[in-house]
């Protein structure tokens, strides 16, 4: 029910700003969080992920996982960074056991998530990035699957994700 999502729309004027917004969101993530990212080549997905990782206290450099399909980073929570650019490869990877990392003990971050949509759990946070100009990027952040959780664990996760999103909104005021 995409129509019911309360999207938080914002504009970033620089990669530094995009990274900072990711960091604020990352600081609020809890075990089991899944963050999906959609957006064109060069729209700032990896930059936003770098911020998410900073917010999770990951000290290692965050680089593109396209080649190896998933990078794992140790932060205050384990951080699993997926890239579904080559959707056929990523789907086979998820099918071959990679899906166990989604919604487990850590935080899963999925770039090009629209290409593996059916694999992704709800509730989850989604970030949609787009080009506005060579420098500016539009961002829309939303909580998918609000109110769908039938168990206490899901409800708790949903509440935590909603709080993480609110922290980004508060950042704008």
């Amino acid at each position: 029910m995409e129509g019911e999502i309360d999207w938080l729309h914002l504009v970033s004027s620089s990669p530094e700003r995009t990274e900072h917004l990711g960091r604020v969101l990352g600081e609020g993530l809890v075990p089991g969080s899944v963050v999906s990212l959609r957006g064109d080549l060069g729209s700032g997905k990896t930059t936003f992920v770098r911020g998410l990782a900073l917010g999770l206290d990951v000290v290692e450099p965050v680089t593109s996982p396209t080649f190896t399909l998933m990078h794992e980073y140790a932060g205050r929570l384990p951080c699993y960074h997926f890239d579904a650019w080559m959707s056929g490869r990523e789907a086979l990877f998820l099918e071959g056991g990679g899906a166990e990392y989604l919604g487990g003990d850590g935080v899963a971050i999925v770039e090009w998530s629209d290409r593996v949509e059916s694999w992704l759990p709800r509730p989850r946070l989604e970030v949609r990035l787009g080009h506005r100009s060579p420098e500016e990027r539009s961002l829309a952040l939303g909580l998918l699957g609000r109110g769908e959780s039938g168990d206490r664990e899901g409800t708790r996760l949903e509440a935590a994700l909603a709080r993480a999103l609110e922290a980004v909104r508060a950042e704008l005021d």
Binding site: F67, L69, M86, G88, R89, L92, F93, E95, G96
Partner: peptide, 10 residues
């Protein structure tokens, strides 16, 4: 090649 990159399972 059909997948545009290395597939770990394969």
């Amino acid at each position: 090649a059909p997948f545009g990159g290395v597939v770990p399972e394969i």
